[in-house]
Design a protein around this nucleic acid. Structure first.
Lengths: 243, 243
DNA sequence: TGTACATCAGTGAACGCGCGTTCACTGATGTAC
DNA sequence: TGTACATCAGTGAACGCGCGTTCACTGATGTAC
């Protein structure tokens, strides 16, 4: 949209009625779709159903989203941002506290978000939605959670608070070493290789355990899932060397 | 379901032609379904498509499976058994070798199976299939992999080869302690609580990392996934105290 | 300011698709006497 | 052994469902002069 000299400022409250309507209806479509997603899951998300609930004819939705995939993509980005917000807020709030506590805290925050947004979590971290291929737009928002977690380790490292216990991780091949070096340069400059490995593993551990809990693999084995999760985060934080 | 005929000698080689045909066609339906599953995933598995490929009318399949869910259940059980076989074989083959090597080996076997049976793995460990509720029949076959992994720790423990490094896992609440005690009694009698915790976490770690690899979360971050996985298994084995 | 034209949100009908499941039926296979 | 009856695999048509997407259209809103 191209505003010329005669127009008021770009984000002016004097936008045309059409513009306002478009923004609002786009938001309504998204929030309705989000609610449907929460109930039926991604595979059950239907353009027609969303349109129906909004009192629109199904084809009208195509004025706002190119197709079903575009709507799904928007929901994914929203969900990543929501989880990213929550995690970043937790990490920011715990600044200055002992690293291990911060790590456990962040993990618990992620778990809480996942429980409250089961289908969104599934959309982000579950198996791929059949027929849907996530475009690159979702990559950046997807990294926020991980970056927030990593920043705890980076902070601790900067303060000299990372003291990894002597635990082997076996030989590291050339290619893996290259991967890890690139990764460290990108998100955690200066942090030791072993710590990078442990951090990546801690990250996957959290999501692995969470998936087991949410998708029912530990059904009947564990009753206090939160305690199990916190214990896991604690141990993994210790392995990373956070305290 | 009408799977059992009213024959006197159930496993006799002189079974009637009808009986033989039923066994064979049931197997053909399953293997066709398995192939479709491998291509389209669980959500895309269609009774009609399976029937079509076998030259049957769709309603004929109902002579063999009560409905689509029953077919899916059979596939799940088959898949768990296939993975269970592979894991148990690897664990048996490594008997006598150092526990850490056995653990890494078993993990690698699981990963290999998952790569070769992507959709089956997804069916077992991915997000739930919409509208499908796994019945209890799938629970027992599902435990075989975990039991095989645990047996490595149990063997090592029996030989006095478990020496966990001094890594904290934080306070353990009453309920979690009860969970762990029950779990230990069931699958690893005599093994210390800390080891049980680490073993459960090692188990979730493997599947968490595997999920990340298979479902694309580490896309672009890690190129040598196998090395990453083996390193993870190695470190987790060390945390458990296997060597 | 008023008028002519351009933009675009929303309509309603249609296309083409595939699915799970039920049901009355036929004809081949199996069983009892 | 032959015959009468019972079982049951497979048929074909139908029910009822919902989906994504396209397209020519209308009428309201916005823009340029």
């Amino acid at each position: 949209m191209c505003h010329t000299g005669s127009m008021p400022a770009a984000t002016s409250p004097l936008r045309s009625a059409r513009d306002r309507a478009r923004t609002e209806i786009t938001a309504e479509i998204l929030s309705t779709a989000r609610r449907h997603l929460a109930v039926d899951g991604a595979a059950g998300l239907s353009l027609r159903a969303v349109a129906r609930e909004l009192g629109l004819v199904s084809s009208a939705v195509y004025r706002y989203f190119e197709n079903r995939d575009a709507l799904l993509t928007a929901l994914i980005v929203e969900a990543y941002d929501s989880l990213g917000d929550a995690t970043e807020a937790a990490v920011a709030a715990s600044a200055g506290r002992p690293p291990l506590e911060r790590w456990v805290d962040a993990a618990d925050t992620i778990r809480t978000w996942a429980l409250e947004h089961l289908q969104e979590y599934t959309l982000l971290y579950g198996s791929p939605v059949p027929g849907y291929q996530a475009p690159d737009d979702t990559v950046v928002p997807g990294t926020r959670v991980s970056l927030a977690l990593v920043s705890i380790v980076v902070d601790a490292h900067a303060q000299g608070l990372v003291h990894p216990p002597p635990i082997g991780h076996g030989p590291v091949g050339d290619q893996l070493r290259a991967d890890l070096t690139a990764l460290a340069a990108l998100i955690a400059p200066g942090v030791e290789e072993a710590t990078v490995i442990s951090t990546v593993l801690g990250w996957t551990q959290l999501f692995g355990l969470l998936g087991f809990e949410l998708f029912g693999q530990t059904r009947g084995l564990v009753s206090d899932h939160r305690a199990m999760f916190v214990t896991a985060a604690h141990q993994m934080g210790a392995v990373i060397g956070l305290g």
